[in-house]
Design a protein around this nucleic acid. Structure first.
Lengths: 239, 239
DNA sequence: AGAAATTTGTTCGTATGTATA
DNA sequence: TTATACATACGAACAAATTTC
């Protein structure tokens, strides 16, 4: 076995940069259960003394954690543990998109995969309340009066389905991807260029997904999903 | 349509906190193509003057970007654009794991989904060089002399398959998940508790995946993958 | 309601270690 | 080796927002 390929599995005990002590501290406190969402962190000055670093370094670490989504800083109030990962994740996807030279097709492909797997799980895990929600989204979509409304309910319908899968990793990845898509790509159905036939097919696919989900008919929902993404892939390219 | 649910799709032009100007600046420069991986950023002092903020604020923004994986700061040299997203992503997954109260099953479930979809794409996109690589991994796995070696080749085999799908989002998510798994969960085959029968079945599933991939036999590879994860899910729980 | 205390947001000055020519 | 450029880090001070009394 190649020896060099072993990356040390342990984390370095002595971080080279002082701001990393803050991250380490917060992570340890979270993993040990001392810090939970909503809890207040020690003040910056206290942290500086406790970790034996300057306040500026403390702030650098807090800023990183805030951007990851682990805490939120409020002027005058303090730093509080939270968990808003979507924004960071979508921003990271944005950087990846440009720095790694990706394109819309790759975004759509990833979304397709996430939804396909989400559906597999959601079909047996969806709850009654979610069934009502997704049917309401479908109603809103079908009775929408303009593309803006259609897009709104379209997105929410898909989001409802994905979250019904009850896997936080998948749901968070999906939300991040969609937030990124909305900001950068806008690869939404509002841009679809097809005629009424395409729109009817799209509506039909949405109905298949929703009815399949509410009736526990996986084949129906899956067929709808595949048809949906085939249509998007065909006509949904931005100009 | 509910009015409140409209989240402004545009990004705020006037960030409330000054460190965000740095992030905005770097993002704009990247999206416009002025900054590419390897490029050097203006010095902190120059950025402070250009963005009309203090050096401390510049440093906060740079630290966020460094942690996202967009740049790396080198003392004495400067700040350079890079793209190392895996570490941040896996760290974020770690925070999510604890703050959202997840468990091993959810991690394994997500990994299963990612690999299943990766295989769908890899079967038609895998290149000859990757076929050789994955067969070499299989050889290393089957001729390994201890659990450490087995685990090494096991992970690399799966990683080779996932990267063969040619979707950066999926590959990055998978790498991050596995890095997280190695750091926190260690839900690897080294912990599998089954006897020789289980090991043989695992080896067989790996062989099915590899041979299916090299021969373009999707059904074979898929059957191997499903069997693999069923085994892991059955016997792979950590103590 | 109002004032004082607390806490984060921001700036500036200074010193030090490191990389580069 | 020396000199310069640069990031790292510390400390003090003030502004702005929030909490507390």
């Amino acid at each position: 076995m190649p020896e060099e390929e072993y990356r040390g599995s342990g984390k370095p005990k002595e971080p080279s940069k002082s701001y990393q002590r803050v991250i380490q501290f917060v992570r340890d406190e979270i993993e040990s259960g001392h810090l939970k969402p909503g809890d207040k962190l020690p003040t910056e000055r206290v942290l500086a003394v406790r970790l034996d670093i300057a306040r500026g370094s403390v702030r650098e670490g807090l800023r990183v954690l805030e951007n990851i989504g682990v805490l939120s800083s409020m002027q005058g109030a303090g730093n509080y543990i939270s968990c808003n990962f979507d924004d960071t994740m979508s921003e990271m996807l944005g950087f990846m998109y440009y720095l790694l030279g990706m394109d819309n097709d790759m975004v759509l492909e990833f979304r397709w995969m996430l939804e396909r797997e989400a559906l597999r799980l959601a079909i047996s895990r969806i709850q009654e309340e979610e069934k009502r929600a997704i049917m309401a989204d479908l109603e809103g979509l079908e009775s929408a009066r303009n593309e803006e409304e259609r897009s709104f309910y379209d997105r929410r319908l898909h989001r409802t389905m994905v979250h019904a899968c009850r896997n936080h990793f998948l749901a968070a990845s999906y939300d991040a991807l969609m937030a990124f898509d909305e900001r950068y790509i806008h690869n939404s159905r509002a841009r679809i260029i097809g005629g009424m036939k395409t729109r009817d097919l799209l509506d039909a696919s949405h109905r298949m997904i929703c009815e399949g989900l509410t009736r526990g008919n996986y084949e129906l929902a899956s067929a709808g999903l595949e048809q949906h993404f085939r249509l998007i892939g065909q006509y949904g390219r931005p100009l």
